[in-house]
Computed example of a mutant assay.
Amino acid sequence: MARKQFRFFPQRFGFFPYIWLIYLVFPVLNLKGYSGFKLMAGYALVLLFLVTYRQLYWQEGKAFSAWLGLQILIIVVLFILYSPYNLYMGFFTSNFIGWYADSRRFWRALTVFAGVLIALILLSLAHIQGTEILFLLPFIMMMLVTPFGIRSMNRRRLLERELDQANEVIRQMVKREERMRIARDLHDTMGHTLSLITLKSQLVEKLVVKNPERAQAEAREIERTSRAALRQVRELVSEMRAVSVAEELAEAAEMLRSAEIALEVDGDAALPGVSDLTQNILSLCIKEAITNIVKHSGADRCRIGIGMTAGEVRITVEDNGVGLGQDRGAEEAERQGGNGMKGMAERLSLIDGSLTLASGAGGGTLLTVVTPRVVKDGKDGETG
């Protein structure tokens, strides 16, 4: 069995805990002038304080509170028996109070800590000059404010970690949905195609002697069918990789050019700051919309608008084709596009996006896709 490696502090905190150790020099310096048992007891208390400091990085729950209480008690003893300036060690405690995620425990710990600080100042009024008290007051205020800043920072980190986990779940759901869609496509298209090739192969085998010319014609048909099947497989495989909006627009331009439909793009196709997940879902929606335009619209012009604000990404796809007609809308579009519109809506729902279908300003059809933007700061954050 491999021996577990000893670590003084958890690795995830990096060098931060070691930097704080520098401030333990001050309580050691405050022991200057003492000797004998009191000096050794002072060193022992500083060493025990160091132990509490390490343990608080590893403990949780009631154990964490117990070690925090012991740390406060050591500060009280060092303050009363040695030097009032040992009160600065309270900065260690104020940092750890901010670690409480539960509001009740946070306020309870902060109240106890504030009570201890006030009590120490009141008990030592006879021994501390007025100027020294005034010098200590700003630091006491900082000790009482610090837990709020630390708690806010920790809550933000927790939210970012939960957001990362949620995004990972969404990515897995998108992958699973894409696999299901590809499986359906394979079953609906390739299953039929392969069955047709099998039947024609059996027919060629029977005709090769009786009617060679007919057998050759059927063989050529098999070749055409197999090439079409190969093309379908390539299309399905190409859709499995993540595609950016800019890449999809390039493919859309080529498809529309082949169909003799003019394309106009307004906006920044790069979508800076938008995550790969969002871009991939948007690109699939654009692909489906362009396919519907080519197949059903009868248009000769298509306009794609890309807009981005602090809160959302909006993409519009408009054509000048036959449109939806009077009293028709999403149901008609779904009938025309098969499962395309439903697939778009399902993908967008994974990232809280939505789509609307309406008649364009000059006739034709206007598809609007909106997805929210989630902005995160930090090295590991992402915007999208």
Rank of each mutant, 00 (worst) to 15 (best):
T309N: 08
R105N: 11
L366E: 03
E264P: 13
H192F: 08
V317T: 14
T309Q: 11
D276T: 05
M341T: 07
L256E: 05
K62C: 00
L24F: 12
E247V: 06
L81H: 07
A269L: 04
G325R: 05
S275V: 06
E235K: 14
G149Q: 04
P372Q: 01
M308Q: 15
N320A: 03
F92Q: 10
A250T: 13
H192W: 09
S258E: 11
R12Y: 14
V233E: 02
G311I: 07
R303D: 10
D380A: 11
M142K: 04
L73R: 06
R227G: 06
A166Q: 12
E332Q: 11
L50M: 06
R227K: 13
L263N: 02
W107P: 01
K210V: 06
L230C: 04
V77W: 10
K32Y: 09
F13Q: 11
N320S: 06
K295L: 14
R12M: 08
A345R: 14
L123F: 05
P27A: 00
L120N: 01
F9H: 12
G364A: 10
V116Q: 02
A246P: 00
R7K: 12
G98Y: 03
A262H: 05
L48P: 00
P27V: 00
L230K: 03
K200C: 02
L120W: 00
D319C: 07
L110F: 01
R347I: 07
G363D: 04
V370S: 08
R241G: 10
K206P: 03
G323V: 06
S35N: 12
V51D: 08
P147S: 05
S103E: 12
R257I: 00
R347Q: 13
E205P: 01
I121D: 10
I182Q: 08
G340C: 09
R181K: 13
A333K: 04
R303H: 13
K376D: 03
L87M: 15
A114T: 04
K295Q: 14
G329F: 06
R184D: 15
S124G: 13
R155G: 05
S226A: 15
W58Y: 13
K342V: 15
R151K: 13
N86K: 04
G149N: 03
I121Q: 15
P27M: 01
R176P: 00
H192G: 03
D164R: 15
E318S: 10
L284W: 07
G298H: 10
D266Y: 10
L159Y: 02
V77N: 01
S275G: 05
I315G: 02
M190D: 11
S103V: 00
W99L: 11
L324K: 11
V208A: 07
T193D: 09
L48G: 07
Y88M: 14
R12N: 09
M341Y: 12
